[in-house]
């Protein structure tokens, strides 16, 4: 099935980068925003035959202030928590009209995008419904680890120890005191054909994952790390660097889950430390060495668990044929 869906897949390389821009320049994102960088890459890979649906959040606000629009493709925004349901309707609307001959039969891709809040918190139900029903669309979570649009409030995707405006660090608080929700695992639990994590610092990997996601029939979920200089309080020229460090520290591993099979895309053999990753981001500045050690042990354990998933879902290579030690008699 998936091989069949991917028969037209042509790997994007540095030389074949799509020149198409679904999202134009001139939008109103903060300087150095990592989220809009990811969104741009997503839309490049989706291509012109796409309808995009966005949830309320930074990316919606900064691209659509009437009478201006940064969208070169048809785009719809309705509300905060319902982007997956809106996309379900778009898919059904096109499908019915093409079947009934009201629209010409043509492949139109549908991409729904939302922040971590719009995905892991308020939009989780609508997302779960759409994944379970099996609509043919790509869902992209742009994870900047807090509600940035409303002023850096915590979400269930905010990492342990980060200081936000509703999980502030203080005399009696470490900041966020819960562990980041594992959204990709929740997506995998719906047994959809394609789940992946991506990161705009690895732009070819990201775009190729979006390409696969759009070509594969059925729902696909892509969870994208999206740095936010404003909310994370890192320098505005550090988005790509911080993003790369997230992978190199094993905090945000890059992997795919294809029909339930885990594929690790970047095996980080010599990781940098969590402390190194935290250093440029002032949201972690208050953490003490023992806090950081505690987080490091969790990152180590999560990495080991991911390795197990890879091992557990990939059949062991066939045993080499038994070779007799005995010399031919």
């Amino acid at each position: 099935m998936i091989e069949q869906d991917l028969k037209d897949f042509q790997k994007i390389t540095q030389k074949s980068l799509p020149t198409f821009e679904g999202l134009a320049q001139g939008h109103r994102a903060c300087q150095g925003c990592g989220e809009v960088l990811a969104l741009r890459q997503v839309m490049k890979a989706m291509g012109p035959d796409t309808i995009a649906v966005s949830a309320t959040g930074c990316m919606e606000i900064i691209t659509s202030s009437f009478p201006q629009s940064a969208w070169n493709i048809p785009w719809l925004h309705v509300a905060f928590e319902n982007v997956a349901a809106v996309a379900s309707g778009v898919e059904a609307g096109l499908k019915a009209q093409m079947r009934k001959g009201k629209l010409p039969e043509k492949k139109i891709f549908i991409v729904a995008t939302a922040g971590d809040g719009g995905t892991a918190d308020i939009g989780l139900q609508a997302l779960s419904g759409a994944l379970e029903r099996g609509h043919n669309f790509v869902y992209v979570c742009l994870d900047n680890e807090a509600y940035m649009n409303t002023g850096i409030q915590r979400s269930s995707a905010t990492p342990y120890g980060a200081s936000t405006t509703t999980s502030p660090s203080g005399k009696h608080s470490i900041g966020q005191n819960t562990w980041k929700k594992d959204m990709p695992a929740i997506a995998v639990a719906h047994r959809i054909p394609y789940v992946a994590t991506a990161n705009p610092a690895y732009h070819l990997d990201l775009m190729n994952k979006i390409q696969k996601a759009k070509l594969i029939n059925g729902p696909a979920y892509v969870h994208i790390y999206s740095s936010c200089p404003t909310g994370w309080r890192h320098e505005i020229d550090k988005a790509v660097e911080v993003s790369r460090m997230a992978v190199e520290s094993r905090i945000f591993p890059l992997y795919e889950v294809i029909d339930g099979r885990y594929v690790l895309n970047r095996n980080v053999k010599k990781p940098i430390s969590v402390a190194d990753y935290f250093k440029p981001q002032r949201r972690f500045r208050h953490l003490r060495p023992d806090d950081i050690a505690h987080i490091q042990s969790r990152v180590d354990a999560d990495w080991a668990a991911l390795q197990q998933k890879v091992a557990g879902t990939n059949p062991a290579p066939p045993e080499p044929e038994a070779v007799s030690n005995k010399k031919e008699e």
Binding site: A85, G93, Q125, R133
Partner: peptide, 28 residues
């Protein structure tokens, strides 16, 4: 009846799907 019936998971999603569908030009 030749139609797509979306058995949504809530009324909030029902109306949201109706918006998406109607925005493509489908009678909804």
């Amino acid at each position: 009846l030749d139609a797509e019936f979306i058995p949504v998971e809530s009324e909030h999603s029902a109306m949201s799907s109706c918006v998406g569908s109607s925005a493509t030009g489908a009678r909804t």
